[in-house]
Nucleic acid binder design. Structure first.
Lengths: 348, 348
DNA sequence: TTATAATATGTTACCGGTAACAAAAATGTT
DNA sequence: AACATTTTTGTTACCGGTAACATATTATAA
């Protein structure tokens, strides 16, 4: 492998001079620079960024720890991260935790060992402990999508959607269409968005004077199985809901399966809405009423915040919180066509 | 930052001994090992894998260079790569080229600089040159999904789907349903799968004795716009096709848009089939007839091949080629319900 | 022309591990 | 007990860059 010393020898200069040329530092005469560049060219030299990272103690690499790259929400977010990282000459190492806090802890440890310059994390749990290995080492962290408890005074930024608000408007929309018994299925109680979405749901019900029925609130997992199981359970209880609020796209997918299996149709028998759009489906058949979050922007913003921390351009040390408003997209799955002239649907 | 020397001092041994303990090497007495472990524990020491990589000249990291993580095919493939890499204690750096050979070359250069142990690449073009920076440095490469020209005798493995066969059976399926004029839209001519899919298409036509009409074959881009534009063009020509074969999911999506805009319906006016499933959509509404490739397995296999090369377990130096058969999933978008009793549809 | 500053280049040591070899200690053998 | 072996531990140098400082060269001013 060709090193900086090989180049130096060939160009008849010192390694340091070559280093200067590579990094475009001033203080190299044009003639010397030309000689060095030629030597680099002839030898096909590529600087060893590993050695560089090692010497400089920074890797120009960030870790992206999410739960599942297979979820379009995270895919899009990841794309935002990658694009922004590339623009700033950072690479991205990516890790899927599958919502497993242990796997998460393992990955964070790994990233700490790799001395990544920073980490973007969608935490699998509200618990703080897995962050320790990073924070203790002074590695900046930006959370995305989800909160972690007890970080108020630490410099861990966060970029998230306003789940409370999103759930609130979605629930309100259902109520405006005449629904009174609305089931809600979200992820694990340990995930902040699960709590928040239930909170927004409760707020909307309260505002409408609809009494809360605990049996309609289900904490499951943000997965197809979770949605499937809880929907079956919800729809088989005596006083079954007329609408179901899926905590995310996967849950809605599972719910859809369950509804179909039970021989019900959407929205005639049960309305079904959810958080996150259902990508391809919605392009083909604009059917599902959803609340969408700006996933790509979340990735971009998180990366920008992180890089700013890394480069130390932020004098401000306190925690930053970016909360993005989600958007309600009204389509048909909540029975909008059936309920002509109701609420948001006047225009129909 | 705590180093191995700090631990050594605290434990009253040499750094080398600590290194041995960390790596679980034999030749350390139980008592010493205990002392060292305790020191590590007390100091909260985590080995600097950067330094480790540097000393050992291997990074335990692979690069994954694909065109777009947003495409579910690549997302799934990436997941296969990540899972397999993690299982073997490798990390994955990921890069999106957006089908741009220049961006690809840049990323490969970057990865070469980072001294990744190997690269998995879905090439943006058949041209070989961007691979040079890796091959010259002896960095193993495994191609996925697509071929690169002139690599016969080089040790660059490949894992791909059998595009010729896939296109062949899909076209044959259309023919069996009575279609004679079938339009096909694929990606750039520089991409091997584009050529292969057209090849399979031609074979099926030839076999059925249907003369080739060049105007029905469109090399565009593997994107929504490509599908949209070419579909509009295909459907507005005088003798318009009764079926369209989308080269991938995005193309089909664009085609769908175009068809809808032109006021046609699927499959009554035009049949529409494609390569790659349309994930969410198909779960909700099993409508699209497609040929699917085992994306996850492709990721797994590619990673396994790569790691085997990296670890040098392969005595065999010649190029390996893994070709996976795609699967035809017959649904309704080619007019199967309309054409009762025809071909594959006897069971209906 | 000489002093002084500015610019260009070189030297040394270090980043934090580990391989390769050397030395010391423990164990076994005759 | 004396020697050979094996096991445990330590020493040195190196991986390939770069910071910090030292020195040589050139330009600028007095």
């Amino acid at each position: 492998m060709i090193t900086i010393r090989d180049v130096a020898k060939k160009a008849g200069v010192s390694p340091m001079t070559v280093s200067r040329v590579i990094n475009g530092r001033r203080g190299v005469s044009p003639r010397t620079r030309a000689k060095v560049l030629q030597a680099i060219e002839e030898l096909g030299y590529v600087p060893n960024s590993l050695a560089q990272s090692f010497a400089l103690q920074r890797t120009k690499t960030i870790g992206l720890v999410i739960t599942d790259i297979t979820n379009p929400f995270f895919t899009t977010l990841a794309r935002g991260v990658e694009d922004t990282a590339a623009k700033n000459h950072f690479s991205v190492i990516f890790c899927n935790t599958d919502e497993d806090p242990e796997k998460e802890a393992l990955y964070l440890e790994l990233l700490a060992g790799k001395r990544v310059d920073g980490v973007i994390l969608a935490p699998a749990s509200k618990k703080r402990h897995s962050l320790k290995s990073l924070l203790a080492r002074g590695i900046p962290v930006v959370l995305v999508d989800r909160e972690v408890e007890g970080l108020r005074h630490m410099d861990v930024d966060i970029v998230k959607g306003d789940s409370v608000y999103g759930a609130y408007i979605l629930t309100k929309h259902l109520i405006s269409l005449g629904h009174r018994r609305i089931g809600i299925i979200v992820g694990n109680r340990d995930i902040s968005t699960a709590e928040d979405r239930v909170l927004g749901y409760c707020q909307a019900l309260e505002e409408a004077g609809i009494p809360l029925d605990e049996s309609l609130i289900r904490f499951a997992t943000y997965s197809e199985e979770g949605g499937y199981r809880e929907t079956k359970s919800l729809l088989s209880q005596s006083n079954r809901p007329t609408a179901i609020f899926g905590g995310n796209n996967f849950i809605a997918l599972g719910a859809m399966m369950a509804i179909r299996e039970l021989g019900f149709s959407i929205p005639e028998d049960v309305a079904l809405v959810c958080f996150e759009d259902i990508d391809f489906l919605s392009k083909f058949i604009p059917f599902f009423t959803v609340v969408v979050q700006p996933a790509y922007s979340m990735g971009v913003l998180a990366t920008e915040l992180l890089i700013r921390r890394i480069e130390g351009q932020d004098k401000v040390r306190e925690r930053r919180e970016v909360v993005l408003k989600p958007e309600l997209i009204v389509r048909e799955s909540a029975g909008e066509k059936l309920a002509k002239g109701v609420g948001v649907l006047e225009k129909n």
